[in-house]
Design a protein around this nucleic acid. Structure first.
Lengths: 301, 301
DNA sequence: CTGACTTACGGTTTCCGTAACGATT
DNA sequence: AATCGTTACGGAAACCGTAAGTCAG
């Protein structure tokens, strides 16, 4: 590998413009520099790149094949240059976001899309640990940013900011017997099968969730919703999980004083007090909070 | 883009070995060269790549991110170098193979696999034109190599070599009524539904193929075989198309004097007399002929 | 005290731009 | 005639290796 990037630049520009002189003008060099650079590159590679018969040089078949590689290498170099500029400007090279949620987080889609266009070169790592692990990960620096439900005993090293409260909905399939009633009582719910959320790893299945004696435990909000959609029973799920199914009319929402009495689930964004965020982290934290307000409604810290 | 490939090599080696001295030994340079190269690269990128506190340099987070890009660029450069060596050694940069066949050509799989390992950097183009277009493409140089059925009026500029004759088989589904007989007559075939090959683009549907009055025209040998497998009728297909289905016992082969009377289909390899093949083309032509003999049995030009 | 990194320094190589020349349109 | 590509040439910049200095384990 004896050739240089400058030679590749000269080769690429000359091939693109079809003229050594034009390439020299673009690269702000003397013509002879381009000429010798291409000649040296040909000598290094052992391949003739241009056919110099006419007034303008023409790519040989081999040159046509190799100019693609040259362009790719130049692109990689520019990518590296741009990345270095971002790193020097205070953008973290990688960012780990830990999210405590069983659902697919459809409300995150827009934020991550914006992040991808705003910071295309930052390596983003998405993890979905349990809440206890999440706190440990933020405390140790394994994760830079976390999203999870409100906890009581937060360590002082961890800061948090409310993202909003998750509105839950009582849903059944559109063809379910309960669907005809707009409002249902605790007794009616207790005598119908309930679909409740569980987790493979979570040992303690919170008993306060269970209302009905006939109950199916299902892992993950999407799977719970699917069971409801198939008419197997009623369930309490976050509204944003049920939204698309509600719009399609596959499931309907019921009113009940039981739902009103449930404890409010508050989502919050978590980060470490000592580990200062750089540009990408600051942006993502801000975007999460702002987007959270749009989705879940306003809620203080 | 002020940095050089040598700087990237020094950076990459130092990061991999964890020592500037070791990198110098690997690259056969003085230690100071590595030291200054890395320092200059850091100055060019505006990013500190190593933490030089201890006895051995340690990558910074930014350096850890950037060393991947450096490795990728180096790999691309080596790829370009290797490609240039092949081109200089007489390997064509791209090769176009035109095949006249409606089937998926399962017998080609091994040849193309070997080609991919033997010539990983050659751009291979596979086209499936009609036979008339195929001859034109070889004549004009659009395709370097062709595979098709024997033709009468070959132009003198096109050379050909027999690949072997395609053995055809009369097949029906294993549960088809005809399957119980080992041998069938023309009359029996004529009174049972025939599945025959057609093509979307081909206007003239060769009438000599049609034996039965009850006939379904299906596009492509695989689809014909599928119709047979489902028990819709009998068909004449190339043996290599039916082979796997025969082995699985889904279809069975019948004997009939009708099949013996069909004209023999001879496959041949075609190329232009004036356009000499280079290494990849020579290899592929040879491999096609040898593999053809294994699959179709020996047959002269 | 060994081995590793940095810095200084002299010599060589390489590279650049100017300029002259031949060739093409 | 204008422009393009090649080649020659002088000066400058970059590069390399040696060597001395500093520091960690």
């Amino acid at each position: 590998m004896h050739f240089s990037i400058d030679q590749l630049l000269a080769f690429h520009a000359a091939a693109e413009l079809g003229s050594f002189s034009a390439a020299a003008r673009r690269l702000c060099k003397a013509q002879s520099v381009i000429s010798t650079a291409v000649a040296n590159l040909e000598a290094d590679l052992g391949v003739q790149l241009f056919d110099r018969a006419g007034r303008y040089p023409r790519l040989t078949p081999a040159g046509e094949r190799l100019v693609k590689d040259a362009g790719r290498i130049i692109g990689e170099c520019q990518h590296m240059q741009a990345l270095a500029g971002e790193l020097a400007g205070g953008v973290e090279p990688r960012l780990t976001l830990a999210i405590d949620d069983d659902s697919h987080l459809p409300w995150l889609e827009r934020v991550l899309g914006d992040f991808a266009t705003r910071f295309p070169r930052v390596e983003l790592e998405l993890l979905f640990p349990l809440m206890e692990d999440l706190l440990e990960m933020i405390g140790s620096g394994r994760a830079h940013l976390g999203v999870g439900y409100e906890q009581q005993g937060l360590r002082s090293a961890i800061r948090s900011h409310g993202l909003g409260s998750v509105e839950v909905a009582l849903v059944v399939a559109a063809r379910h017997p309960l669907a005809r009633q707009g409002t249902v009582t605790r007794t009616e719910l207790a005598s119908t099968r309930q679909i409740a959320l569980t987790a493979r790893t979570r040992q303690k299945s919170s008993p306060e969730i269970q209302l009905s004696s006939a109950i199916w435990w299902v892992e993950g909000d999407p799977a719970v919703l699917e069971m409801v959609r198939q008419g197997h029973g009623w369930a309490i799920v976050p509204l944003f999980v049920a939204n698309s199914a509600l719009e399609r009319g596959e499931v309907v929402r019921l009113q009940s004083d039981y739902v009103a009495g449930l404890p409010v689930q508050r989502l919050e964004v978590l980060w470490h007090r000592a580990h200062a965020h750089r540009q990408a982290g600051q942006w993502l934290r801000q975007a999460l909070l702002e987007h959270g307000r749009d989705v879940f409604g306003d809620a203080g810290a």
